[in-house]
Amino acid sequence: MSATPDRPHPAVRRFEILARRRSVLVRRLALVTLVAFFTQQVLTNFTGALDHFIVDGLSWAYLYAFVLFGLIVVLTAVYTRSMDKVERELATDEDGAL
């Protein structure tokens, strides 16, 4: 299928959708990652906020670090599932419904 004056080339339309959705997703996820990680760095390096213990053997600092590992895995899954979904939709969008 090629372009007409009122209908852009399918590859261009796919690019526009992919670029828009990817950009929104990347900005949100990168912001969450950076804020979560550097908050930990600031709190542990410059304040005593995470020095205390929840119970014997588990400090707030370690709890934050373990939660951060979980958060990274969740954000990774969110990104890949969202991108896979967009690509699947674009692959089956022959009639330009999107």
Binding site: V26, L29, A30, T33, L34, F37, Q40, Q41, T44, S59, A61, Y62, A65, L68, F69, I72, V73, L75, T76, Y79
Partner: peptide, 21 residues
């Protein structure tokens, strides 16, 4: 102690940023 763990925590964070960007 805990400060040594910084050297492990940053790795998955860095690779998530690599994945996104």
């Amino acid at each position: 102690g805990f400060n040594g763990f910084y050297l492990a925590v940053y790795i998955p964070v860095a690779f998530l940023l690599a994945l996104l960007l």
